[in-house]
Design a protein around this nucleic acid. Structure first.
Lengths: 202, 202
DNA sequence: CTGATACGATACATCCCGTATCGAATAAGG
DNA sequence: CCTTATTCGATACGGGATGTATCGTATCAG
């Protein structure tokens, strides 16, 4: 939020023409649309500027690179996030949340997070922002929900919420990137059921 | 192996100066060294050519881009792969194999596969090659081992080997990319133990 | 009205890529 | 031995993207 953006408070020092929020939104929308149409790699800053009908400097004043724009656009799109909605049972609510996540991954936002996560492997600052604005908020929510489940006796008392998050959700990211199969509800169920029951026989 | 490389059999058509295997190896080593020193993004084809003391055309004759070189270098380095070695018990062997994988991820090869996996998100051909030369061979081995475990009664008969792979190994990739914590043996144990036991109380 | 900044547009230097081309080197086949 | 095909190092070229700079205009605060 303040690492990737540029001159976040630069204009607040004195009077002057304020930055147009309308232009700000136009850039975000143009960038997101272009990425979904042509892919992250295929588009350039020029393309975004042209589609938004703004000068390139107007973009560089706000963001330092392509990834930073897409990050903002992505968070703005998906932020009305998928919480843990109540279901028939405690564990069913987890399954539904996983399905909701898989649905996001299947949709247009899946392409965005795929590009962001990949780009973050080469850009530590982007990685930090992705953690702060996407990963960690969702992990915190899940941890709270799992702790409640332990307390209420739905989960084993020796369950570590962090490990449980990784086991349940990492496979979704794995399929998103590896393409070893579809991110279907059936796949979610398979992961969920196996993880809840465990593999060991006795 | 034949998708990314260029002119794989182009020189076998007629007589002519054969390509030097010594140069081939020099390029692979230079590329790998440079990536480990400066990072995938920071280096260019020129840098690789300069370090290997070859012309750039000599590189483009063999590989179509940076990622293809690193892919070959990576597979050459890590191919003496980590199999399922016998341990005290059937399941302990799985744990050891996971630890071995985590060790690879912690080491220099971890940086290479991180870059390759990220790059593959933007390059379908590279993604296919990564699947064929890294992911799938290891999945096949794991599937065989898990099927044997089911047959021998060490694992529940209703276990799906594919799902089991995802649940056990996807968390390692997750940490490799997200940086939510260290890829330590302790982490591997936590994932392994939780996955084997399951989360549900009753 | 004045000053400060945003804005669109354009130009510029820089970097990297992929291809082309050159003369020299190297090996296979006749 | 000699022809032929190809590799090799080196260099040049065009194309595209990046990030910065600059110009005249637009917009807002005081």
């Amino acid at each position: 939020m303040e690492l990737e953006r540029k001159h976040e408070g630069a204009q607040t020092t004195g009077g002057g023409r304020p930055r147009s929020p309308r232009i700000h939104q136009a850039i975000l929308k143009s960038a997101a649309d272009l990425v979904l149409e042509s892919g992250f790699r295929a588009i350039s800053m020029d393309d975004i500027a042209a589609r938004a009908k703004v000068g390139r400097m107007t973009i560089y004043r706000r963001w330092c690179n392509k990834a930073a724009i897409i990050m903002d656009a992505f968070v703005a799109r998906v932020d009305p996030g998928t919480l843990f909605v109540p279901a028939r049972t405690y564990t069913e609510s987890i399954r539904l949340q996983m399905r909701s996540m898989a649905k996001v991954f299947r949709g247009k936002d899946g392409a965005l997070i795929r590009a962001l996560l990949a780009e973050a492997q080469f850009d530590p600052r982007l990685a930090a922002e992705l953690r702060d604005r996407w990963t960690m908020p969702r992990r915190k929510m899940a941890i709270a929900y799992f702790q409640q489940g332990i307390k209420d006796g739905f989960l084993r008392p020796d369950v570590d919420p962090d490990a449980m998050i990784d086991i349940l959700y990492a496979p979704l990211y794995y399929r998103l990137q590896m393409g070893t199969g579809p991110l279907s509800d059936a796949y979610v169920d398979e992961i969920f059921d196996h993880a809840m029951k465990g593999f060991r026989k006795s």
